[in-house]
Write a protein that binds this DNA or RNA. Structure first.
Lengths: 231, 231
DNA sequence: GTCTATAGTCGGATAGAC
DNA sequence: GTCTATCCGACTATAGAC
């Protein structure tokens, strides 16, 4: 839309030459909702409003398109997450942050995770792909795991290590951090169950706020930070 | 095997007339690993060592087989879970159990969940179906949700309500219980990530014990039961 | 770069013999 | 109840015009 590539008047194709981008967008949506096997190349091409042959032309195969989507997710989410992680790592390396500061950073990471997932409108698309890769890893798993999940987990382990005064590399620490992350993951995985149980229509800002409040409260409890808490 | 239906000698088919059961077993395994769309009827028939037409004959369609699998899971898991839930409900209704007793029952429910999932050998099969239905509900979701998940969640909410002295029907209580459940769900969903991070080969009894220990510890923290805890 | 047409394969389902 | 053979639609991928 920003590049006026065609001087001719209106064509049939709404966005000239951006077939590649439109394919990735459509694939992100459709793969996220219905899984790789659940979407046909015809459906992808139709939703992207490109020709069927464009998938082979740009990505070599349906699987190539899927991997392009994984890289897209990694870039999109990574660009939001990695700066924050770098900040925390710097703080951990340079200074010797106090327990309270580490806890604050831990909460910040949780906020980032909530913000990029539950809080984001288009999160439902990539979260579906992300979760499915967790359950049934393909070549895309490495991209997503190494790019986003492992750095986040490692960073949280270091913070938890300082807060709890335990070895961040210990198996128990890693498990505890996974358990913490699991609380958030639950609301993605079991979205249908949660909304049905609570009579929600979906995850609007109010519902997300309720979840965030519980998760922050739980973070405090799980890291032994509760000094004078009311329940 | 128990019904000697054929008086003839050994046939090609290893189990006479139990085509139906073998199809459900194969479908449980294959659907659990590869999802509904990821498995063809030919693959199903081959693994079940039945004829291709048997799927239509016994279940009407591939989808019919899938629903039969969902009912099978509901029966199989329900038979283990529902008696415990009934026990807890009875205890809650009849007596007025103390906080400690409620906490013990809460831990018991967690143990049941771990035992039927992480602790069970063939759990990986049905857990995959269960989780996929959570993400992408189909007609099978109602069977699994109403049969197993909702009763479990409701029961845990009642216990949590007494332990925390809050309304078991309150949205916050429901969310807190979902968060608790999420800790366990995480280790199913992110099995690949967890094993890779921890250098595990899978979830053997030792690994499950590590997870159980953390989850029980967290349960204590999340329900405010920590009187004199070290960490 | 974009399109049509089609190759070649595999999918779920069915008919009808036994 | 079980099997073979087959229909027919849908699939991914490709060839080649423009």
């Amino acid at each position: 839309m920003s590049t006026p590539s065609a001087q001719t008047s209106l064509r049939q194709s709404p966005a000239p030459e951006h077939a590649r981008k439109r394919l990735v967008d459509a694939a992100l949506d459709l793969f996220g909702r219905y899984s790789f096997d659940g979407v046909s190349t015809r459906t992808l091409a139709r939703q992207a409003r490109v020709n069927l042959a464009a998938i082979q032309y740009y990505f070599g195969s349906k699987e190539g398109l899927y991997l392009a989507v994984a890289r897209h997710i990694d870039q999109r989410i990574g660009s939001q997450v990695r700066p924050v992680l770098a900040e925390v790592e710097t703080a951990l390396a340079a200074r010797n942050p106090s327990r309270d500061v580490c806890f604050a950073m831990m909460c910040r990471l949780l906020e980032v995770m909530i913000g990029t997932t539950l809080g984001s409108i288009d999160s439902k698309k990539w979260v579906g792909i992300f979760m499915r890769e967790q359950m049934e890893p393909s070549a895309a798993f490495d991209i997503l795991f190494e790019g986003v999940m492992r750095p986040m987990h490692r960073c949280m382990c270091r913070l938890a290590g300082r807060i709890l005064d335990v070895d961040p590399e210990a198996a128990e620490t890693k498990i505890r951090v996974y358990a913490i992350m699991g609380q958030l993951v639950m609301f993605h995985i079991s979205r249908a169950a949660v909304t049905r149980t609570l009579g929600w229509q979906g995850f609007q800002s109010e519902e997300v706020a309720s979840i965030r409040a519980v998760l922050l409260q739980n973070m405090r409890a799980l890291l032994g930070m509760e000094d004078a808490r009311s329940t």
